[in-house]
Amino acid sequence: MDLDFSPLIDSWRFIASGLGLTIVLSVAAVVCSFVLGLAVGLGRMYGPGWLRVLLVFYIDSMRAIPVFVVLVWIYFAVPIISGHSFDPFWAALIGITIHVAAYVAEVIRAGITSIRKGQTQAGLAIGMSGAQIVRKILLPQATVRMLPAFGSIVSVTIKDTAIAAVIAVPELMRQAETVAGQSYRPIEVFTTVMVIYFLLIFPVTRLIDWFYGRVAHLGRS
């Protein structure tokens, strides 16, 4: 078996642009799904009854449907309903956000419910409002406890952005497919891209674990 890495060297800019887009999409998806997930998580815990039912249904549905299915549905089916076609990047961002936000919401709920009841009661006893208790007592401690779970959500999100390749978002996975197809060197291309993805995801998860190790004591109660 002879290996030839020259197609990769020739098209490194093409691959690098894909890596850039993967990073942009990952960061955007993480930020959006955390914002949406926080809203959904809090709404599921403190919202009115009908909203809770709705949000539980949404969360469990997202746990049941593959992100691949969500992406192709948004990209191919939504334009038929709405009459407007999406840019693939936005379709991917929306799809991944809708999917990951459900998991973020679950993590937030688990984090908040893990704080002992006495803490809430203490807050109420000194006259704090419900919103104040959530903001000043529950969330600060819960956030620390949620860090390891958030770490794995970030890593899952980066991995999910690769699925955007199936709706032709020119991110790393898609660019790799293109180069592999044009050069007939799939083994070299995909192996190299494997290394790139690993170097991207592994340090991120390690960094979050390390950070958690530093602040874990703040989450104890």
């Binding site: 078996m1 890593s155 980066i158 991995k159 999910d160 952005t161 690769a162 699925i163 390749a165 199936v166 996975m173 790799a176 497919e177 592999a180 799939p186 083994i187 995909f190 192996t191 891209v193 494997m194 993805y197 690993f198 995801i201 592994f202 998860t205």
Partner: peptide
Amino acid sequence: VELFRNLPLLLLVYWAFYVMPV
């Protein structure tokens, strides 16, 4: 473990598709 945990599955599928026959 660290390698296969930190890779997108889609990439792994393509990789297996091209590398396994070789």
